[in-house]
Design a protein around this nucleic acid. Sequence first.
DNA 1: CGGAAATTTGACGCTAATCAATTTATGTGG
DNA 2: CCACATAAATTGATTAGCGTCAAATTTCCG
Lengths: 249, 249
Amino acid sequence: MEQDVELSRSCLVERMRYYTPLSDKDKCLLKSLENEEISYRPRTRLSFSENPSYLFVLKSGWLYRYDEIDEKRRQVLRIHYPGDIVGLTDVAMQSAYGEMMTVTETVLCPFHKSRLDDIFIHSPRLTALLFSLGVLNQIVLQDRLKIMGRASATHRVAYFLLEMHARLRIHSPTKSLDRFEMPLTQDVIGDAIGLTNVSVSNALAQLACEGYCTCQHREVILHKLDKLKEMIGFQDRYFEIDTSWFPNV
Amino acid sequence: MEQDVELSRSCLVERMRYYTPLSDKDKCLLKSLENEEISYRPRTRLSFSENPSYLFVLKSGWLYRYDEIDEKRRQVLRIHYPGDIVGLTDVAMQSAYGEMMTVTETVLCPFHKSRLDDIFIHSPRLTALLFSLGVLNQIVLQDRLKIMGRASATHRVAYFLLEMHARLRIHSPTKSLDRFEMPLTQDVIGDAIGLTNVSVSNALAQLACEGYCTCQHREVILHKLDKLKEMIGFQDRYFEIDTSWFPNV
DNA sequence: CGGAAATTTGACGCTAATCAATTTATGTGG
DNA sequence: CCACATAAATTGATTAGCGTCAAATTTCCG
């Protein structure tokens, strides 16, 4: 029991066990990825392009990945929350994809990409889970494509808030979580959904005006969560993984 | 030798061996996924939402996946080429994502999702490859996000043509392939990159006017492939997979 | 060859980008 | 704890690009 409590302190284990029960062996496998720790200050630029052989477990804090398009434009590709594995898009290719920037104080646990082999070789079940989480990521990206392609500025911003809400819910599934911290600036939000900071500001004003939500002082309050979801047809992808076909070993 | 030739007729084996050498066992594993065949006519709507437990190897033909937004709007999420595994976004979740439509005459090989377990259990190396191809897909989606968020209509269309070019190159890496068939209508292209068919038409006219490429009679000719790539900063993601860390079993 | 689908072309309107100025919030040192 | 400097957010005026609607032309396919 003591041991189990000890193991559950792993951020990655917390995340994974949310989707499916884990054997002690699997917990150990995951836990071992968090042996080292590096801390970063807020707003630190992280560039691992020189040798993208390391992945990271994001232990605490927020960071985002972005890619420069030109001097004044960039695309925010992904926002990372605690429990995320960071850097897969770097290690699968021979070169890194964009850069990362910490938002808050951040702790990363680096591990070499060859450590993934341990999982692939020793735990087909964990492998299936990692694989499925990769597919889930594709689905989330596809959702974002849909929004970027066709939705108005207001809908895009609403979508962004709802996706953030869905992400945060994973780590506090009991709470209703109608309010949460928002450390991202409107510039970053805009770069994530293809808008200028001005348009984000206007969209937030309109959402507030219609009573859906407010976003002030780095805090989001979702007054009409369900109505908001309905308005843009939002689906929470983070609760849906089908584990029925996973191998039992 | 005879056997090897026989095995190489598998579309999936062809695709996978492009990225890394495969053992005979791995070839058999992959080949066995193509035991059944179903043919479809062009422009057939495929909906497997009732019970999304089957994946498909796309043996021949083209099809695309899309999702309706409202009556008149849809987002084309992905275009599938021979050798693709189709349907991962359905089986990982408990419900299907959108629908599919064949473009040309198409042959699909269905297999149950539990067959993936065979790969995860028996071939860590093939698992690593499947996993990496999933990550590659995420990268391609991220590239598309970048384009959708910030690029002009002309750049979007140029990007679309170049991505198609990159995809087709996988299956004929020797040819320079500066011209290829384009069975997709401008409506479909537009729905893929967030434009109307009218804007696609205008963008193609401008690209042709500037001498970059022509798209007529269902055929694309890229006159200045390199200049076009340079103009939009295109990177071919399909050649980059890093297999150095894959397990040897 | 004939009907339907796809593409092209043009006129007009709307949304969000751009540029710029102002207000508000944040964080630091005294 | 306050004053100050800087960053972030808000507001407004103007503009460019794409969407929308509609009609004409070309292509496709049985």
